[in-house]
Amino acid sequence: MSFASDLREPAFAAREMFLDAGSRDGTPALARELLMMDDADYAASFKGSAIKRAKLWMLKRNACVVLGNVGTTEDLAVLEAMRTHDHAIIREHAAWAIARIGRHPPP
C-alpha cells in the first residue's frame, strides 16, 4: 500500500533551479549556479522562500565546499572567480576547493 500522491499545492513545487539537483551531475551544476549569482539573482530566485534566511555569501561558501568534494576541473573557472570575492571566508573556501580538485581528480 502506498500513501504517496502527486503534489497538489503549487507553493511546495520545486523551484526551476532545483529540478536537476537530485542527480550526481546536477549537484555541481547547482553549486556553480549559486556561485555565479549576484544579489538580484538571489532575491528573484528565492522570492517568498525561507531559504532567504541564509545569506547569499553563506550559500556560496557551501557551494565551494560542495565543489571541493564532488567538483571536477570544469568547476575551476567559477572557483577561481570566487578567489576575489568580498568575503574572506568565500575566498578561503574557494582556494580549498581548488586545491582539493587538483589533488583528488575524479576517477
Rank of each mutant, 00 (worst) to 15 (best):
N69C: 07
G68T: 07
D75K: 13
G102V: 14
A40E: 10
A44L: 01
V66R: 04
C64V: 10
L59K: 07
L67A: 02
K52M: 06
H85E: 10
A54Q: 04
W96T: 13
A99G: 12
H87T: 14
D86Q: 11
A81L: 14
A44W: 02
I89R: 09
A99P: 04
I101E: 04
I101T: 12
T73S: 12
W57R: 10
A63Y: 02
H104R: 11
K52S: 08
K55Q: 10
R61V: 15
T73M: 12
R100V: 05
G71N: 09
A81P: 02
H87L: 11
A81S: 13
Y42E: 01
I89G: 00
D86F: 06
I51G: 01
A50K: 03
L56P: 10
K55W: 06
A50M: 01
A63F: 03
A54F: 08
A95K: 15
R53A: 11
A81Y: 00
V66H: 03
V66F: 07
L79F: 14
E80D: 15
R100F: 05
H104E: 09
E74L: 13
Y42W: 09
A43N: 09
E74V: 10
R91H: 13
R61Q: 11
F46L: 05
H104Y: 11
A63M: 01
A97F: 09
I98M: 12
H87E: 06
T84R: 15
V78R: 10
A50L: 01
R61D: 08
A77F: 15
H93E: 14
Y42S: 07
D41L: 01
A95E: 15
D86C: 00
M58Q: 14
G48M: 03
A50Y: 04
A97P: 06
Y42N: 05
W57A: 10
A54R: 05
M58W: 04
L59M: 05
C64G: 13
V65P: 01
A54V: 14
N62P: 03
K52A: 08
A43C: 05
A77G: 13
A63Q: 00
M82I: 08
A40V: 15
D41F: 05
F46I: 05
V78A: 06
L76P: 03
H87P: 00
K55F: 03
G68A: 11
T84E: 07
L59C: 09
A94D: 04
T73Q: 12
A94C: 07
C64Y: 08
E80L: 14
